[in-house]
Simulated scan of single mutants.
Amino acid sequence: MRNQPKYNFFKNTTYALKGLIDLLKNETSFRIEVIITLILLPIIIFIDTNYTNKALLFITLMGMPLAETINSAIERVVDLVTLEHNEMAGRAKDVGSTIVFISIFIFIITWALILLDIYS
């Protein structure tokens, strides 16, 4: 049996919003990705393409802040465990950064291919 309170949708939503606010206050990369997301979301709505392409544009766009959130969580847990230089801690943080890098790479390739297809 897990030492965890009974599930409560509204309480869990509060935790999620608390985490979002913390990311916005403390993570510059996350703020940049949110700004990019807010700028590009209307483009997805108004771009003349099919719903499958719009879904791909949306999913890859949202993948960036999602990956940054995962990376921030990894970094915080590693920092909680040790603030001293540790090879494994550094490798864990590097893997978190790789998640972000891959999400940005997928975003750029997907958007480039779809936009080239539409406007060529």
Rank of each mutant, 00 (worst) to 15 (best):
42 P>S: 11
41 L>R: 11
62 M>F: 10
1 M>L: 12
89 A>G: 08
6 K>V: 07
16 A>L: 15
18 K>Y: 15
13 T>C: 11
45 I>M: 02
112 A>R: 01
73 A>C: 01
64 M>F: 03
44 I>N: 04
33 E>W: 06
110 T>G: 09
24 L>P: 03
82 T>K: 00
80 L>V: 00
96 G>T: 00
113 L>H: 03
2 R>N: 07
42 P>C: 08
10 F>K: 05
40 L>F: 13
46 F>E: 05
64 M>Y: 02
43 I>N: 13
20 L>V: 09
92 A>T: 01
106 I>M: 00
95 V>P: 09
82 T>S: 01
111 W>F: 08
73 A>T: 01
106 I>Y: 05
100 V>R: 05
108 I>N: 03
85 H>R: 08
16 A>C: 13
94 D>Y: 06
68 E>I: 08
50 N>R: 04
36 I>R: 13
99 I>N: 05
25 K>I: 12
46 F>M: 14
52 T>D: 02
30 F>N: 14
71 N>L: 00
66 L>I: 13
20 L>K: 04
10 F>P: 00
95 V>K: 05
83 L>E: 14
114 I>T: 14
66 L>V: 13
62 M>H: 06
111 W>L: 05
77 V>C: 08
105 F>Q: 11
94 D>G: 08
51 Y>Q: 10
28 T>D: 11
74 I>F: 02
94 D>P: 00
52 T>V: 12
21 I>W: 14
16 A>F: 15
42 P>V: 09
97 S>C: 02
22 D>N: 11
18 K>A: 12
27 E>D: 14
98 T>I: 04
86 N>E: 06
90 G>S: 05
50 N>D: 15
52 T>K: 04
43 I>T: 10
47 I>L: 13
38 L>H: 11
80 L>D: 07
110 T>H: 09
70 I>N: 09
17 L>N: 10
46 F>H: 08
